[in-house]
Design a binder for these strands. Structure first.
Lengths: 192, 192
DNA sequence: GCCTCTCTACCTATCAGTTGGTAGGCTACG
DNA sequence: CGTAGCCTACCAACTGATAGGTAGAGAGGC
């Protein structure tokens, strides 16, 4: 039951953070959802900050796995880029939760340092993955900037959809990004 | 002094919400920054929710004024669109605060209903303003979708910059948006 | 078989700090 | 006088965290 409890805690905590931010890490609430008492959480995580960091790291690993899955499922880099927004789509569906890193980016001033580095790592992983698929060779500065823009745009779509409009608005916004060629490395600006 | 106090409270509270979200509305903290005691705030606002709603409404008015200013300063709709991200740039500068509506969109589940409607109104105002400048005639569906995308992209740029990279990253991301033609109504998708 | 030691996983009870909010009093100004 | 604006002194609720105890599983010696 021990391994299972830790997994349950991490899963519940992750969902809470995606829905309520760092404040979603309420020990009594999480414990109650897992089916234990609040102080028992301290047998698995020494502090709130540690639990938060563990949740973030696990989330990062999960998204890394999702990126790998997209890479394997699509043979062209271009197809990978088109598929990228789908990774964050299912959290938005139903409970309208958003990317954990996006929520914590907003709250960055009120979050323990360990979590901050985890957030920065998450952003870096996403941007690097995007940049690798934007440039045929090693990612250059242009590819990195484009990758930054894609990451930011997708994060903004989640946020806006959560604010009002829900999943449908997310899909519409992503479709518009596609139409303007944001996900294509070769899109040409006509003039300033 | 009364009018002045209310203005001070609103200004301080706004800055706190932009930096810490709804939790930034800490009565003791805000009162201390204004130079009075916490219970005195109740002489001006009956509750935390009311203060939050007042802050949001004032913020909305301020952004509306900023949009008007942009409209007056630029004679072409296209120039207005290019200038749009500048409205949120100065909050990010220095204290790296973000759009109040973006922060509260993330926290939408934990915010009083009055604030939620205020947030939705804010998004609507921004999107409408953008759509009006995207289409020569009355905004059609395409213009509204493009406006949604611009709003979301700018929000995401603020969030990402706050998460890591700061103002420079914001500027870079916005520049990339410009390059792909996100802010131009006539940008043509070459092929899927 | 049985006893003891130890470890894990959980519990109840409680703490100190912080929060939004209230009651009631003082002061100064019209 | 009355009211606006502020105060001190509180309160109840909730938070992260600690202290100390209990039930049960497994290991080892005898």
């Amino acid at each position: 039951m021990s391994e299972n409890t830790v997994e349950n805690i991490l899963a519940v905590a992750r969902a809470q953070v995606q829905a309520h931010g760092y404040d979603g890490l309420n020990f009594r609430d999480i414990a109650s959802r897992v089916g234990i008492r609040a102080p028992s959480l301290y047998h698995h995580f020494p502090s709130k900050a540690a639990l938060g960091a563990a949740v973030a790291r696990r989330y990062c690993d999960d998204v890394k796995a999702a990126l790998d899955a997209v890479s394997r499922a699509n043979d062209s880099p271009s197809a990978c880029l088109q598929a990228y927004p789908g990774i964050f789509r299912k959290a938005l569906d139903g409970d309208s939760r958003i990317c954990l890193a996006s929520f914590l980016s907003a709250q960055i001033d009120d979050v323990p340092e360990k979590l901050r580095t985890e957030i920065r790592a998450f952003i870096h992983i996403n941007v690097t993955w995007l940049a690798e698929r934007l440039s045929a060779s090693a990612p250059d500065d242009t590819a990195m900037r484009r990758a930054d823009a894609i990451y930011a745009a997708v994060a903004g779509a989640q946020l806006t959809a959560r604010g009002s409009g829900g999943l449908r608005r997310y899909d519409d916004i992503i479709a518009t990004y596609r139409n303007v060629g944001l996900f294509r490395p070769d899109s040409i600006p006509s003039e300033q």
